[in-house]
Design a protein around this nucleic acid. Structure first.
Lengths: 192, 192
DNA sequence: ATAACCATGTAAATGGTTACATGATTAG
DNA sequence: CTAATCATGTAACCATTTACATGGTTAT
């Protein structure tokens, strides 16, 4: 699924600027299952304008560049529906944190902690974002997906907190030799 | 994190061919947090060979092409550790199924069902893969990550099954107008 | 017979990220 | 005064995906 389709999908929820579409991917309903940067959103929007999949209204703003508010055309709506009826690909996940945690035995204590915290905080923030959304007007699919996202995030945070010691202070027989010395800290006893 | 680093990481668990590395991403311990295809693995391996990050032993095989078994060099191990100590990026998730389920109100009933099944089956298979792994020799990080993956997959399957009706047979007031007529089926009553 | 599996690789096409470029406003 | 937010866009770079190319073995 390319950025074009994602933009069409976003616009089906209401007119928006490229800037606002980006925010949807960062903080809004889409944050937990897709992302896109300006470098792919703006070109996608311009391509779709020339294909007549979207319309554009220019809104003058003092000082700032003109706001360009995009809206779906009928053709765009048809294209969106067509794309949504293709065979879905499997999920693609790229989690650097999980790779790093997998190789905890090669990490310094400080890096292990840093990765752990990054991961937990990412999903704690995600939970907050999802909880702040107003779904009173939302269609059933959106509610379903929202509930799934929330559940997943909560599961991650819960697992991380429950198994913190397993990662950060493993029992000696769980930590084979070859570990990296830490340049900053050195807990003499470990988990006492 | 690029394919090169992922290959180094895989090789730190034991010598392997490109083909076997791919399998690790599909069925092994890595399946739930990263992926890579042949088109990126083989070039990565060759580049690393010229950078002396890996060694290669050719194993003759009757009929089949020579097997090329790669192993980490000391330089490769150092590079891996260096990469693992960088600041981790946030997770990137691309889930076409979730996008489609979000827009269930634009989908035909048959497509909704297809997407639902694709999603559930993906993670049911994932659970099976993870359960078949032998972790008796695994380091603590690997066990930690394995537990996390399993927990997440189980949570997804459980949520999907518990909320099946919400997606496939929503109550009328949860399904706003604009739904697409199905070309194959038509349930007259819905959830009575 | 046919499909799937083992096994490696290249080239072209696609597409996404990063850095650059501009510039006013507002909050700390 | 500085950083963040609003607002758009291009170009170079980087990486991945897909299709192509080869070819024997094993299971159905």
């Amino acid at each position: 699924m390319d950025t074009k389709t994602l933009c069409l999908a976003t616009l089906s929820l209401g007119d928006a600027t490229g800037y606002e579409i980006k925010k949807m991917f960062e903080e809004g309903s889409f944050s937990h299952f897709y992302d896109a940067g300006f470098g792919s959103i703006y070109p996608a929007l311009n391509k779709m304008l020339s294909e007549e999949l979207v319309n554009c209204q220019y809104v003058d703003q003092a000082g700032r560049p003109d706001k360009k508010v995009y809206s779906l055309t009928e053709k765009g709506r048809e294209r969106l529906i067509q794309e949504l009826h293709k065979a879905p690909a499997f999920d693609k996940i790229r989690s650097e944190c999980v790779v790093m945690m997998f190789f905890a035995h090669l990490l310094s204590d400080s890096q292990t902690e840093r990765v752990f915290d990054t991961y937990v905080n990412q999903y704690k923030q995600g939970i907050q974002c999802l909880q702040e959304l107003d779904l009173s007007e939302a269609a059933h699919g959106r509610r379903f997906v929202h509930g799934l996202g929330l559940k997943l995030y909560e599961t991650i945070v819960e697992y991380m907190e429950q198994h913190r010691e397993q990662l950060l202070n493993p029992l000696p027989d769980q930590a084979p030799p070859g570990a990296v010395a830490d340049d900053e800290e050195n807990l003499p006893g470990g988990a006492a």
